[in-house]
Design a protein around this nucleic acid. Structure first.
Lengths: 207, 207, 207, 207
DNA sequence: CATGAATGAGCTTTCATTCAT
DNA sequence: AATGAATGAAAGCTCATTCAT
């Protein structure tokens, strides 16, 4: 009775198993039976909680994107400086990678496939996530901290693409990678922010 | 040579068909039979030119990555300024997207799936491609044009990730996108280069 | 008896639901869960009253065949003329169709499938039903009202087959049918009886 | 090379196997794999010739109904007397039963299930078949050989229903049946025709 | 070299049935 | 007796791959 999650326990177990299995094999090489086995439920049980195999992935994205948005929103609470917000985002994204490598691998690897596959579905959450990024940049522009000639709509994607690729590297390289998260955080945030902010560099670059 | 071209004709037709089919459906939802039909060859003929379905994707990457490396190398010929080289790369990458949207969609979308799937195979070409990027950055450092505290190994991925995500947007948005390639080129190159180069911004950022 | 009615209530509800569901989908396309839902009982409850899905159909036949035999017996009470008995049967059968189209659809459609499927089971009731028909015919022969060269064993099947097919038509055509029950009754009974009885026609037919 | 039916051989083998398997188990208890095994083809081969399991049954009906219509049409060639035509039909139907008991069992048993299941499909052939019967009866009326008060639309169904049920009995009883085909033919044709024709019986029946 | 009919392993999904509550 | 979540066997169908022609 302490845990009212008697049932939803299974929902979570299936989702966790799916993350692990998808990370190991990729979505298309994963078998529903393997997820069931890892979740310690019967094959059929999965279909009590999810419409079909696709639905597992979709719900996985919706769920986890929501969590990521929540975590990011929490991390940004009390941060007022837009530039600092960008740093907080980058740090928080890398922290996610360190804490949930399997999940991040799935999101990073499968979201691409799924950008098409899920055009109709989970993109909404993804767009909400991206919007947080463009909002930070837009706010920086409004406050005069970020250059006028910056387009938040382009830079949100540039930022996400950079983070996505660096995350993929971290996740796939595992412990064998040359770079640690701290170093990546520093370099990614410094250079990206410098790119958005420096007014002095103009002549140099254009000249 | 007369017959040689007859054969490679089919090889090329299969590869071109694969690009179109993979772009339309994704690798795992594409059927060998559909590729055969689009290439106007028999199903079995494909297995005279490729070991199996995976092999089509692998060879596709090797082939096209080689072409991209060649095109980029050609574009870089005569360019000596490392900073200018980065601009040339960005311009050339966007040009590829405009000229071969299907191909770029396949590479952009499937390379992720395949980074794992193809760990043993085509990565070699991909790494050669990435190395061109880190070489440009390292050269910039050596010439004092790029900051000392920049890691070419991290920045090559940051740069590729940014370009990959912007390309994906262009490719998926099609004509409906808000941004044109020219604008993206300008903004991506300016801000990325600014991020690598500006010495003056240090205090501002750190302070 | 108070609790007895509570129980048989569920038994009846399940049977009624089964009639409606089987009529709608056919036996093999009907789901136990759908019957349960329509009977407003839990899936598992069905297995307190029936051994399995097959058993529902078997009991349905036994039950309803019994009712039909009862109804027919009642209708025949006081009728002494064997020829009139045949008329009463035909009229009573069509009346069943009009009053319980779903039930008659199930019996008419599924009994075939089930003649095999139920070879061991419910045939007993069906044979009792058929026997009423042959008894009427035999009685007619004994009384000299029906021709000597008629085989009750064949004609009981001919009669049932005719009624079965006409019922099927009525049931499937619904309101859109061209013929009404009254007309069918008249034509079916007149011609069938004529076939059994006419002595004068012999030459004509044989000649 | 004599047999150009190299391929359609398989089509026929699958259909023949389906008849035998469906007759043995009924449609819904038959497995595609069992049909494949009996036809000595691979499971997948079936799907080169038929869209799905349902389609096998549908095509089976279309095919065999066509054959039956053809056989009946041939048998009727040169027969001018409508009454004789009815006899020819009855004889020809029983002959089909004797020659192809499995097929007739499938048609007889599954056509019911399928009257619903196939509402959209093969009914066309079935209706063509029925129409031959009503045409014979109508012709008899026109020539004054069949009573005025007979409805061809009702009697075609009565006739078919009678034949269908008698066939079912023959097919299911096998050799154990009490009646032989010759006897059934005589009794079914005599009494059915008497029912349609006798003018003299009127008073007797009505009175 | 080319074909495409044939193969059959393998996967998703369904659903009758069970059993802890 | 009643429930309904959970089970897992079973089967239809797909599609990469082969091979006789």
């Amino acid at each position: 009775m302490a845990t009212g999650s008697k049932n939803s326990d299974k929902h979570k177990r299936i989702l966790d198993a799916a993350i692990s299995v998808f990370a190991r094999n990729g979505f298309y090489n994963s078998k529903v039976a393997e997820i069931a086995k890892e979740a310690k439920v019967a094959d059929g049980t999965i279909y009590l909680y999810f419409k079909n195999k696709d639905d597992i992935l979709i719900k996985l994205f919706e769920d986890k994107m929501n969590e990521m948005i929540g975590a990011l929103t929490t991390a940004l609470e009390g941060v007022t400086d837009p530039i600092e917000k960008i740093r907080v985002y980058i740090r928080s994204h890398f922290a996610m990678v360190a804490a949930n490598p399997d999940l991040m691998e799935v999101i990073t690897v499968e979201l691409r496939q799924s950008t098409k596959f899920m055009k109709e579905y989970a993109n909404e959450q993804f767009n909400r996530y991206l919007k947080i990024l463009s909002d930070m940049i837009r706010e920086g522009k409004d406050k005069g901290l970020i250059r006028d000639d910056i387009s938040p709509g382009i830079q949100k994607r540039a930022l996400f693409g950079m983070m996505d690729e660096l995350s993929l590297y971290l996740v796939l390289a595992g412990d064998k990678g040359k770079y640690d998260i701290e170093q990546m955080y520093k370099e990614a945030s410094d250079s990206f922010i410098r790119g958005l902010t420096c007014y002095e560099c103009n002549e140099e670059i254009k000249g």
